[in-house]
């Protein structure tokens, strides 16, 4: 690795430095646009007591769900976790802690963390259980609650293409939480389907500028579909 070149060649290198008790922010919505191989590497490393910040927790046997197998996750910060049974078991037995967070607030918590904003006011959740214990302020006659941003020790994201400098483009709705997650890690690790040379991507089309990316690796992806809905052709 030299200069702006972010490419690493192995998943061991990509996730080096991840330790027990760290906070990991992950991109993905359901199992769309998830960093599949980085998650597999965390499973292989056996890191424990992790706080995972991600909209969902994968499904049984896929995505972040696989980190439940060996109880690697201490706490999940998510908006929706209804997809897997092991999750339900661990939640009910108290092994797993869950902080349910509205989806827009979760996206903003990541975005704010990456932008150096420690907290922000939002109307979302005012008057509900999630507002309990949070500062309330009125602006222009409306009440808002104070939500704190979530910086991560690591951020793991999945993009479609990136150049060696980490300038990245996402494909379709596999973008989702990835651009914000990419900004929010002390160490941001990105895996992509294709790495190209700097200059090959149109600078105006870049979704995530390389400044946010610390390590870049090319992988192959299963890209399973959670709910396959089709119409007659």
């Amino acid at each position: 690795m030299a200069g702006f070149d972010k490419v690493v060649n192995t998943y061991e290198e990509a996730m080096a430095g991840l330790e027990d008790g760290m906070t990991v922010i992950s991109g993905g919505f359901g199992i769309c646009g998830i960093p599949e191989n980085l998650i597999k590497e965390i499973k292989k490393m056996g890191t424990k007591e992790l706080t995972i910040v991600s909209n969902n927790c994968g499904c049984d046997g896929l995505g972040l769900g696989i980190l439940l197998d060996d109880r690697q996750i201490k706490k999940m910060v998510s908006s929706y976790v209804g997809e897997n049974k092991l999750f339900e078991e661990q939640l009910l037995s108290g092994v797993l802690e869950v902080e349910l967070t509205p989806q827009g607030t979760l996206a903003e918590k990541m975005r704010a963390a990456g932008a150096g904003i420690p907290a922000f006011y939002t109307a979302t959740g005012y008057g509900t259980d999630i507002a309990k214990g949070k500062d309330v302020r009125e602006f222009n006659g409306r009440k808002y609650i104070l939500e704190e941003s979530i910086p991560g020790d690591f951020a793991i994201v999945k993009a479609w293409k990136a150049d060696r400098y980490g300038n990245a483009i996402y494909r379709h709705t596999a973008q989702n939480f990835n651009p914000m997650a990419a900004t929010a890690g002390k160490i941001t690790v990105m895996e992509v389907e294709e790495i190209v040379e700097p200059g090959e991507l149109d600078p105006a089309q870049i979704h995530t500028p390389g400044i946010y990316v610390d390590r870049l690796i090319q992988g192959t992806f299963e890209k399973r579909i959670e709910i396959r809905t089709v119409r007659e052709g």
């Binding site: 827009g104 979302t124 959740g125 999630i130």
Partner: peptide, 14 residues
């Protein structure tokens, strides 16, 4: 079982 609010709280507030 609590599955989560997803985007519903944001939608009704916004």
């Amino acid at each position: 079982l609590i599955k989560g609010m997803g985007g519903a709280m944001d939608l009704v507030a916004g």
